Amino acid sequence: MARQGRSSDWGFPRWRGYGSAREAVNVRLCDRAGCNEPGNCPAPKSPNSPDRWYFCEKHAAEYNAGWDYFAGLDKEEAAAREQAERRTNEGYSDSSWKAWAGPGDGSRSRDELRALEALGLDPDAAFEDVRKAWRTRAKEVHPDVRPGDAKAAEEFQKLQLAYEVLRAAEERRTWKGSGI
């Protein structure tokens, strides 16, 4: 009878490290043709089907690029669904509030996007661009420049509100980012 050799645990199995097994680990590859990356992102093959594709992160992003969560809903239904989702998934909005992400990557709220649109800026505009656009446009429609013009006064109030929304969001980001 051949001796098998000593184990490194000296008879105490709890001394072994966890996951120290030597057998091969099965890795599922990406289902995209020609991709050799691990496929760890499941995606449905069709609506209401339990069958899934398994893509790598790059191909999962490509798969989801044209997906619209609010497809087929009118404005009121979409707003109601968004409000219900925000009520149950505070963690996602919490990450953007703590400025874990930069501008233009989904970290801005819908109110901030509306404010940027009112100022005529892109969604990834920096706060300095916001300040410049607000000053330029506010000077054009300020009530002191156009006295008695109701439309200009309304436009000025709209610009003022948009600036306040963006300023408050910027203050939250810088305050949370400072680590205080």
Rank of each mutant, 00 (worst) to 15 (best):
F70T: 08
D51E: 14
P44V: 12
K58E: 09
K58V: 10
W67F: 13
R52Q: 13
A60S: 12
F70K: 03
A61I: 03
Y63R: 04
E62S: 09
S49D: 15
W67S: 07
K58Y: 10
A71C: 05
A65C: 02
H59I: 04
Y63A: 01
H59D: 05
S46H: 06
S49H: 07
C41I: 10
G66D: 12
Y63S: 01
F55S: 02
F70Y: 15
Y63K: 03
E62K: 10
F55M: 02
G66H: 12
Y63M: 01
A65G: 02
K45D: 04
E62F: 09
D51V: 05
C41Q: 15
S46C: 05
N48G: 06
K58P: 01
W53A: 00
P47E: 10
E57M: 07
N48C: 08
C56H: 01
Y63G: 00
W53L: 01
F55I: 01
W53R: 00
N48W: 14
N64S: 10
C56T: 05
D68K: 09
W67Y: 14
A60F: 13
C56L: 07
P44Y: 07
S46A: 15
N64D: 08
P42M: 06
A65V: 09
A61C: 04
D68N: 14
A61L: 11
P42Y: 05
A43C: 15
E62P: 00
A71R: 11
D51K: 14
C41E: 14
E57P: 02
P42G: 11
N64A: 14
P44T: 06
P44E: 10
K45I: 15
A71L: 13
P42R: 06
P44A: 15
F70R: 04
F70D: 04
E62I: 12
W53D: 00
A65M: 07
P50L: 11
F70L: 13
C41R: 15
P50C: 04
S46Y: 06
D51M: 10
H59E: 00
E62R: 12
A61R: 13
C41M: 15
W67Q: 07
Y69Q: 13
S49A: 12
A71M: 11
D68W: 05
F55K: 01
Y54P: 00
K58R: 12
A71I: 08
G66T: 09
A61Y: 05
P42H: 09
H59P: 03
F55E: 00
R52M: 13
C41Y: 15
K58D: 08
P50W: 03
G66V: 02
P50E: 05
K45Q: 13
S49K: 08
P50F: 05
W67G: 03
E62A: 11
A71K: 13
K45C: 10
N64K: 07
E62T: 07
P42C: 10
Y69I: 09
P42A: 11
A60E: 03
N48S: 13
H59S: 02
N48M: 13
A43Y: 04
K45A: 07
P47T: 06
R52G: 02
D51P: 02
Y63H: 12
S46F: 11
A43L: 12
Y63D: 02
C56S: 03
R52C: 09
D68Y: 08
E62H: 08
W53H: 08
